[in-house]
Design a binder for these strands. Structure first.
Length: 485
RNA sequence: GCGCCGGUGCCCGAGCGGACCAAGGGAGCGGCCUGCAAAGCCGUACAAUCGCGGGUUCAAAUCCCGCCCGGCGCUCCA
């Protein structure tokens, strides 16, 4: 079983599943008040990789990632733009989903919206008020944090510690019994969307929606809860507080990933920085960002800039070229080529599979796992060069392992990606495709004939002509292969 | 200020007490292959003095202490 760092215990420990063979993951998704930025993408990629890997090992995964579609920032934006909160949320959720598709993030099994769970939230808050764990006044309903002795445990602080910070930095709120108390329900203010509740019209507080949605879909005592490490406090801590105050068991394991820095965020484009995911993917292959995320451990801050993106794009070329070489040799690059199914990889190269598994099991060691895949690429190339029968298994291994990481190859893939997100017209690097090509084929064949006749001047002329059309020709023992650069 | 995380080659980035070398990717350089390329493969010196200074240990990039620098958090941000 995979071992993961658990924020609560501050140790790397095996994930102890509630139900054998099944994993429930709740990953905090975005509040959709603006276009997604690269940090959102890293977040989604982290959990997509975790999910894919767990599925690869044969576990049945239920991946839940919420969309928070009602909150102060959405309200503010809607008010500023003279449209409804729902319109704002819908616009940016669409933008978010497009970015996720661009980086090949599998759709979560559930993508609940906060506004769909207001009824559950109200019930939950009602229970807390009923037991005295929370109190209501004119401003709303607040949780009595003072009753929770281990409040702060997720960030390894004591309540007094936090109280000091809260008292010092935040103006005293007269509606709270304790500065640490926070709103479960906010009473209606003019111009804001509201729902009816036992405490009058109002709307949910920030943390309650994730408690309602996670336990509503995955049930109590679910396996993994995660998000960016900036969410550990107050968001996740407050979720814990709410769940614990209700007497229910919450997440068994807490997984937090680190942030991404885009150098000197102030001067964006001119310095090669990217404010939004769209900016990044208009300039670079989205797969390169996934590779970058894979090559950095999830608990470590990563830096994104033009230089590292370009390096990652070049690295990707190793996979794409293996794809071409394998295809030219008549080998399938389908994951299923070697009869692989989730949890069963015995027909693949066992050394690579085991190295991969052991890297991933060790706190999602994607950098080492990715290194294993690159090692396997080299072995596959060597086997291909030698015409060895081992090539088929090695190639199949590469694509199986890479698939578990969500990497997809083949130059034609890029066009698909851009079509998927409607970026085809805005890319500033040349999208590569497998063009339809009776004409190109004819030129390539003519060149082959010229080479066979040792008429190299003509062969080179034809290659130049192809180059002028953006076509790269490579000669292999299995004949020439070509693709659009 | 307090808490947590981090500072590794030209660049990105693993490793986190030793027994096989400080992975992997990128750049540069040299070689093999090629008609020439491309792709691929092989090699790559000048100590990578693993932020700096102490310490523990038979043994430290890996543990401890101090310092410097960076990131995140300290109430609505992935």
């Amino acid at each position: 079983m995979i071992r993961l760092y658990d924020t609560l215990t501050a140790t790397v420990r095996p994930v102890a599943l509630r139900d054998a063979g099944k994993v429930g993951i709740y990953a905090c998704g975005p509040t959709v008040y603006d276009h997604p930025h690269v940090g959102h993408v890293r977040s989604a990629l982290t959990f997509d990789i975790l999910r894919r890997y767990l599925e690869w090992t044969g576990l049945e995964v239920t991946h839940v990632a919420n969309i928070t579609d009602i909150d102060d920032k959405i309200i503010a934006r809607a008010a500023g733009e003279g449209r409804s909160e729902a319109e704002v949320a819908a616009e940016f959720e669409k933008s978010y989903v497009e970015a996720m598709d661009a980086v090949n993030v599998l759709r979560p099994h559930h993508s609940p919206h906060a506004t769909e769970f207001v009824g559950e939230m109200i019930e939950f808050v009602r229970g807390l008020v009923g037991s005295g764990a929370a109190y209501a006044n004119d401003a709303g309903v607040y949780l009595r944090v003072g009753r929770l002795s281990d409040y702060g445990a997720l960030v390894h602080r004591t309540p007094d510690d936090l109280r000091q910070g809260a008292g010092a930095r935040v103006e005293i709120d007269e509606n709270k019994e304790d500065p640490l108390d926070f709103a479960l329900w906010k009473s209606a203010k003019p111009g804001e969307p509201t729902w009816d509740s036992p405490w009058g019209p109002g709307r949910p507080g920030w943390h309650i929606e994730c408690v309602a949605m996670s336990m509503g879909i995955l049930g109590e005592d679910f396996d993994i809860h995660g998000g960016g490490d900036d969410l550990a406090f107050p968001h996740h801590e407050n979720e814990r507080a709410e769940a614990n105050a209700s007497g229910r068991k919450f997440a068994r394991h807490w997984v937090h990933h680190a942030m991404v820095n885009v150098a000197g965020e102030k001067m964006s484009k001119s310095l090669g920085n990217f404010r939004t995911a769209g900016d990044l993917f208009a300039a670079h292959d989205p797969r390169a960002f996934r590779l970058l995320v894979l090559q950095t451990h999830y608990r470590k801050t990563m830096e994104v800039n033009t230089g590292v993106m370009t390096q990652a794009e070049t690295a990707l070329e190793r996979f794409d070229s293996l794809t071409r070489r394998a295809a030219a040799a008549g080998l399938s690059t389908e994951r299923s080529a070697a009869g692989v199914s989730p949890g069963h990889h015995e027909d693949l190269d066992s050394a690579a599979v085991e190295a991969f598994r052991s890297a991933m099991d060790n706190d999602l060691g994607t950098p080492e796992a990715t290194a294993t895949v690159f090692d396997t690429v080299r072995r596959a190339n060597t086997a291909l060069d030698a015409g060895s029968p081992d090539a088929a298994v090695l190639v199949a291994t590469v694509f199986d392992l890479a698939g578990a990481l969500g990497l997809e190859f083949g130059r034609y893939i890029l066009r698909e990606i851009h079509d998927r997100v409607g970026l085809s017209d805005s890319v500033s690097y040349s999208p590569t495709v497998a063009p339809e090509s009776a004409e190109i084929d004819a030129l390539v064949e003519a060149r082959s004939r010229a080479r066979a006749d040792r008429d190299f001047a003509e062969a080179d002329r034809l290659r130049d002509e192809l180059t002028a059309r953006g076509i790269v020709v490579e000669d292999t023992p299995n004949g020439p292969i070509w693709y659009q650069a």
